[in-house]
Write a protein that binds this DNA or RNA. Sequence first.
DNA 1: GCGAGTTACCGGTGGC
DNA 2: TGCCACCGGTAACTC
Length: 290
Amino acid sequence: MPELPEVEGVVQALKPKMEGRTIQQVQLSEVIRFSFGEGKQCIVKQAEPDAFEMSLTQMTITKIERRAKYIFFHMRKENVPYVLVSHLGMTGAWFVVNSPEEINEAKFQKHIHATFKMADGGFLIYSDIRRFGELRFLEKIEDHTPLTKMAPEPFDEIACDYFIAQSKLPKYENKSVKEVIMDGQVISGCGNIYATEALFAQKIHPARKMNRISEKRKRALFEAIVTVLRQSINAGGSTISDYRNINGEAGSMQNRLQMYGKKMCPVCDTATSQMTIGGRTSVFCPNCQH
DNA sequence: GCGAGTTACCGGTGGC
DNA sequence: TGCCACCGGTAACTC
């Protein structure tokens, strides 16, 4: 499950290997083609498979950057800029290899969905087991509304004030804190794992209503989120089930998690509780978090 | 036009 | 061994 720190790791690894290179040929999987024929948008969004392949052919990757949990591949063809937006969903992974056979994990090998053959040799490959990821080819970011509504990067100095302001809006003030901090229009890139960790660190119950938290506590919570995201980036991300970096390696943050996926509270040894908030599983310590 | 709520997208995993 | 419910980030759709 790649979250912001995992995506950051992917981007940092992709940058030196892919920036400046030109795509010679693109090939989408049969699954994508078949799904499109069925009227579905499997991985490739708002484009016909043929048109998507053609659009990216002869495109030069100028810059790769992360925004929330999205990867932006900025590109250029005949001096016109474009961008390929990638989201890894639950199980997406990028690989930079000399040949597709180099992907040695069977389940990633089996679910290769986009193969980019580079003009100077080698391949950039997108694999996605559960196909929750997306590839979206745009002329500019503004062409896709959800991307324009995203909160600032959590490391941006205005991000905390932005969070405070958003949290006071009518549509958020009566919601649970966990739902609000996981909303990309409030804080960007805070998924279930890191929301769970930050709430535990601040001893806040995930179901507590936003308007029952003081501004001081909200600021402390925001800092806790930033801290846990930074820690995880430094640890190479959390490898929960299927995350791999572009070399197929796992991260180590999962070993440092205090609450996500835990049966016992590491502070007071009470059995943890679980409830569904905003449709997502939430783990917390009923003794420590109020 | 906007917001709230619902559905779609999936295969690996683990429990029985 | 085999079946089946469960899981989840985001967009798109409906109301």
